[in-house]
Each structure stands twice: as structure tokens, then as C-alpha cells.
Design a protein around this nucleic acid. Structure first.
Length: 557
RNA sequence: CGGGGCGUAGCUCAGCCUGGUGGAGCGCCGCGUUUGGGACGCGGAGGUCGCCGGUUCAAGUCCGGCCGCCCCGACCA
């Protein structure tokens, strides 16, 4: 591609409202432009990156037996009514000219299950794996960070159909293997995490996370352990407790926070028990107890309760337990739930009386439930955890009969008996892979693409103007490289050299070749690897440049 | 949905408080000089000041309403 002909509107300054690095750089480099909130156009160079990602995905899903098709974005709302998902806030709803209720699909379980329900009749038709790359529409409450969270985006979605759970399990595992190959091939740093199933339904779920500063989730990492902070568990930091033998009341005026109390008593925060009063959705008031240095993980608590909850109000606390800031489990008439990290004690707790705490409290033996948030300093199998922000770049769900049941997707088994089809669904967001790659590898100068998804492998800069010998040599090299099948962006413009260098670094192709007067005279082209901006020793001789460039590319990340 | 901020040239912004001939830098076009890190000179084009209404002799500026966009939180398969 000749730069002079390329539609690549670069900007010297980032958009005023951009915050995330990938947002700034992708706009500056001319890869994407915003049309409205959460609505983005992909320009030619950006679309090349997107296409490279989708092609990697396509090959790997084909490799596990996937068959590509295309399902509609606009769908009858009735279909969604049947699965109970037509009232989701994020779902765009609209009417056609006749007043018929429609929705814009945020995912395609309904459409594909409808299709399969009508077309699959016999156990002989199974298993099947269908997938597509299709636009998903989501009325996000808050789109953000460029293309990281948008209202319209392309997703690779595959859907597996099997006779039973065993078959579905096979396809689920096949996807885990394919996903590992896909993310490895993109060149990203990534993790497979256990995750919450959310409103997707089904049982088990894994999500695929790319660590990056603009990430919206937090991932807990320790050795081979990786889990979304929403569901992560770890061993708490051990701590030395005082050797209080009996329960004694202590006077603690004004010490209503863990910090104040720990400071006042000269104890570590973990020697205190924090009381978190909640009201479960059935109206029960409960006291959740956890170590003073720990915090409640709302999602884990909700999953443990099997119900939603809210923090109790000060009035509710005062009426049933004690004065806020001084409440504890001793002698109260409400259900008490102890976190798994609470040991034998002794601990300091609120005395349920103003300005009073109790030392030497030993919690009763009994059930413990892990409902705390993993903290820095925790360990998993002895390995300290790291908590890093990450962006979700894919997920897989075991749907089982969540959709086949409401939509009547069944088949006849060997004995002629009607059976429900077991499903799985598997998503990947190529745009997020693009943005995560920018986030992970960019430096002060700009983007540094992994080779597998770079818009072009090579960025050839001609420093000479038209008519000069060095321009003629660059033209020749461009032709040779193309002839050899190298993807090359050729900067053939008559602009300043500094501008060419700066733009090449902003755009981030893995290898830069520079051909100026020097090269024309010496017969050697200068070559610089974008990642780390390291010059290639000795450059690349013009004579067998294509072969040499190809072998250099092989070695690049 | 709660909180905060912003809307003036293609981009980044000043001008608004204190109403009176719409500006800068970059980019763009032309000419010339330059040419290994966003170079320089001269000339030029480009604006319904987000929209609607009000106040006023006069509104980019003051007032009201609306729309749009960003950030934090809530929310988010």
C-alpha cells in the first residue's frame, strides 16, 4: 500500500475527551473515529488489524469443526420474550412501520436456537458447531475508553449443539483449547479465568482476560491460578493475635472505624472483627462478620446467600443490634454469618453498647463461608497474589438447556424419544483484542503491534523526494517486497522526514525500513524493530532484501 | 440513574466573568527555501460560536429549555 494513496487521517494531538491510552493512540494513528457515544468507524488501517484478528479466530474455530454462517441483527421481540430476556435494559427495542415489536440482538442465542430447533430433528444431526462474526447491539449505560466498551461491536459467537452434557463438555473443552491457540497467536498477554455466569445463564463459565491499565475488571493471579476478583478465593495473610484469655469490655469512645480502633488498642486491623449488617431480599436482617483487614465481596456474598441483599440502614441496625460503630455478634438475636478467614480468635468485637468493645471474643465453631474480597498479601498455594486490571476479551458458557427448553430445540434419540439439545456459547471480541494489544505494548512513541495483527508487517520509508535515485531505489524495494509477498506500507510522500518517522512509530508496524541517500549509496537499507526501537545490526542489503526481511520478520514478536 | 465537566475552524484551545468588527497554534491550499526526527518564509481558504427561545439598541458572551459528548460511581452476556 502506498501511503500517498492511503486513507489514514492521523492526528498530532489526542482527542480532548480521550482518557485511555488505546483510545488516544487508535484515534491519533487514524485507525478508528467516533460517530457517537459508543459508536465507532473503523478506518482502513484499523480494519486491517481487526480483520487479521478475525482471520486468526476463523481458522481456529474452523479447526474444531465450526461452520460459519450469519444470523440477523434485527429480530422479532417475541423470540426474546420466550427466553425471558426481552426486558433486559441493555437490549435495544424498536418497532417497524407496522408497529411490530423488534429488538436489536445483543447476542444470538435466541436466533441460532430458533434455527436449530426447526432444522435439527434427529440424533443423527448432532453434534453441530455454528458460528458467526456479527454486530452486537447493546444499550450500554456508559460506553467508555474508545473501542473498549461500545454500544455496537462485532463479536465472534459460536454455539455448540449436542445430545447430552458429555457431548457439550467435549465442545466446551475444544473451545478452551482453540481459545488458547487464538490468544497465543494474537501475541497478547492473557489469562483464562473462572468467572461469574452473570445474566447469560447456564452453569460454568470461563472468561479470557488481557491485563492492561484501562481494564474494567480485576484479575487475581498467583502462579497458575487466575480468577476474576468477583469470584476469586485465596488464603488470608496470617497474623499474630493478642493472647486475651477471657471476654473483657474496653472503653473505646470515638473509635468507630477499624482503623481508629486498631490504632487505639495497638492491634493489627486483622485482630478485629468487622460487622457488616445486611438485609436479604426476603427481609431477614443478618450480620456478616469478617476480619477487620478484609472487605465483603458483594458477588460472592450474593452467590453464597442465593439471594440479593442490601446494607442495613442505621435505623435497622440500632433497632435490632446496637449503636452503629459498636455492633458485634455477641449476644445478638440475628443470624450471624462468619467469613472463612475468621479463625478461632481471640478477636475484638463491638459490644453493642455505646463507646464499648469486647476483647477476647472467640467465634463459635460452625460453618464458615468465603465471602470476602481477595486482598494484596493473600496467597494461593503459598504464592502471593497479584491483582491486576484487565479487559475481558472472550468468554465461554455452558448453557446446557437454558435456551433449548424455552425455544423447543429437541431431537429424537435412537429410541424415538424426544430429548433437549445441550448447548454452549462462546464469544470473542476482536475490537477489544485490538485495543488490548495497543494498551499492552505501546510506548512513548506510539503503538507497537504484535506481528500477527499489525496492519502491515513492514513500514518502508522513502526519505527522498520524487525523481531522486533514493526514491527510485525505494520504489524498487517496494516492488520487490510486494512481489515476495511481504505486507508493506510504503511511505512515498514528499513530506518532511521527521513526520515520516513519527508517523511510522505512531502506527506501530513491527519492522521499519528506511531508504534515504545513505542507503542508495551504500546499498544497505536501515531497519528498525518497532518493539524496543532497536536497530538491526548491519541493516538489510538491497540485493536480497525480500528474503532477509522475511527471515527477520520470523523472529519478531 | 446519582455526581462532576465540556460543546467556538479539520484537531487542540483562548475569548464568556465585565454584551459592542470572532482569535491563536497545528493541519489544509499556493509559491519559494529546506530535507535523517512532526523545518522555515510569504500569501490564502476555512465558522449557522451545539439547537431553540428570552432579555437587550446590540448576545459567542447574560437568562431559560433542549440536544450532544466525556469522566467518576451505580450498572454491565
Amino acid at each position: 500500500m502506498r501511503r500517498s494513496a492511503l486513507f489514514l487521517p492521523t492526528e498530532r494531538q489526542p482527542p480532548a475527551d480521550a482518557e485511555a491510552l488505546s483510545h488516544k493512540l487508535m484515534v491519533r494513528a487514524g485507525l478508528v473515529r467516533q460517530l457517537g457515544s459508543g459508536l465507532w468507524s473503523w478506518l482502513p488501517a484499523g480494519w486491517r488489524v481487526h480483520q487479521k484478528v478475525t482471520q486468526i479466530i476463523r481458522k481456529e474455530i474452523d479447526g474444531i469443526g465450526g461452520q460459519e454462517l450469519l444470523l440477523p441483527v434485527m429480530q422479532p421481540r417475541e423470540l426474546w420474550r420466550r427466553t425471558g430476556r426481552d426486558t433486559i435494559d441493555e437490549l435495544f427495542k424498536l418497532q417497524d412501520r407496522k408497529g411490530a415489536e423488534m429488538v436489536l440482538a445483543m447476542t444470538h442465542e435466541e436466533a441460532v436456537t430458533f434455527l436449530v430447533a426447526a432444522a435439527v430433528k434427529s440424533y443423527r444431526d448432532l453434534p453441530k458447531l455454528l458460528y458467526h462474526f456479527q454486530v452486537k447491539e447493546r444499550d450500554e449505560p456508559r460506553p467508555r475508553a474508545g473501542v473498549l466498551r461500545t454500544r455496537e461491536f462485532i463479536m465472534k459467537a459460536s454455539y455448540s449443539f449436542d445430545r447430552d452434557a458429555a457431548g457439550r463438555e467435549e465442545q466446551y473443552e475444544a473451545h478452551r483449547r482453540a481459545y488458547a491457540r487464538i490468544y497465543d497467536r494474537t501475541g497478547l498477554e492473557w489469562f483464562e479465568c473462572e468467572s461469574d455466569v452473570g445474566m447469560m445463564g447456564g452453569t460454568v463459565a470461563h472468561e479470557y482476560m488481557a491485563p492492561c491499565p484501562a481494564g474494567e475488571d480485576d484479575v487475581v493471579l498467583a502462579g497458575s491460578y487466575a480468577a476474576n476478583l468477583e469470584v476469586a478465593s485465596a488464603d488470608p495473610q496470617p497474623l499474630a493475635l493478642p493472647d486475651d484469655r477471657e471476654l473483657i469490655e474496653v472503653h473505646t469512645p470515638g473509635q468507630t472505624t477499624v482503623q481508629q480502633l486498631a490504632g487505639g488498642l495497638g492491634l493489627p486491623a486483622g485482630a478485629l472483627l468487622k460487622a457488616f449488617p445486611i438485609v436479604v431480599d426476603d427481609g431477614r436482617l443478618m450480620l456478616v462478620m469478617l476480619r477487620g483487614d478484609h472487605r465483603v465481596n458483594d458477588i460472592k456474598l450474593q452467590n453464597a446467600l442465593g439471594a440479593t441483599f442490601r446494607p442495613a440502614t442505621t435505623e435497622e441496625i440500632a433497632a435490632r443490634i446496637g449503636p452503629a460503630g459498636y455492633i458485634g455478634p455477641h449476644g445478638v438475636d440475628v443470624e450471624v454469618l462468619y467469613d472463612a478467614a475468621v479463625g478461632e480468635g481471640p478477636y475484638v468485637i463491638g459490644a453493642n453498647a455505646p463507646d464499648r468493645h469486647l476483647r477476647g471474643f472467640r467465634p463459635p465453631a460452625g460453618p464458615r463461608i468465603d465471602i470476602r474480597r481477595v486482598e494484596e498479601g493473600d496467597t494461593v498455594n503459598g504464592v502471593p497474589v497479584r491483582i491486576v486490571p484487565a479487559i475481558e476479551i472472550g468468554n465461554i458458557f455452558k448453557l446446557n438447556t437454558r435456551y433449548s427448553e424455552p425455544l423447543g430445540a429437541t431431537y429424537l434419540d435412537e429410541s424415538g424419544k424426544e430429548q433437549l439439545i445441550f448447548m454452549g456459547s462462546y464469544g470473542i471480541g476482536p475490537a477489544r483484542i485490538c485495543a488490548a494489544a495497543v494498551e499492552q505494548f505501546a510506548d512513548e512513541q506510539g503503538i507497537s503491534w504484535p506481528r500477527a495483527i499489525a496492519p502491515w508487517e513492514v513500514n518502508l520509508l522513502s526519505l527522498g523526494k520524487g525523481g531522486t535515485p533514493e526514491r527510485a531505489a525505494a520504489d524498487g524495494l517496494y516492488a520487490d517486497l510486494r512481489g515476495a509477498g511481504v505486507e508493506v506500507l510504503y511511505d512515498d510522500r514528499d513530506t518532511g522526514n521527521g513526520e515520516k518517522f513519527a508517523e511510522a512509530e505512531l502506527l506501530g508496524c513491527p519492522l521499519r525500513l528506511t531508504l534515504g541517500k545513505r542507503s542508495a549509496e551504500s546499498g544497505v537499507v536501515e531497519a528498525q524493530v518497532r518493539r524496543g526501537r532497536t536497530d538491526l545490526d548491519g541493516g538489510v542489503p538491497l540485493q536480497d532484501a525480500p528474503a532477509r526481511v522475511k527471515s527477520v520478520l520470523e523472529t519478531l514478536p
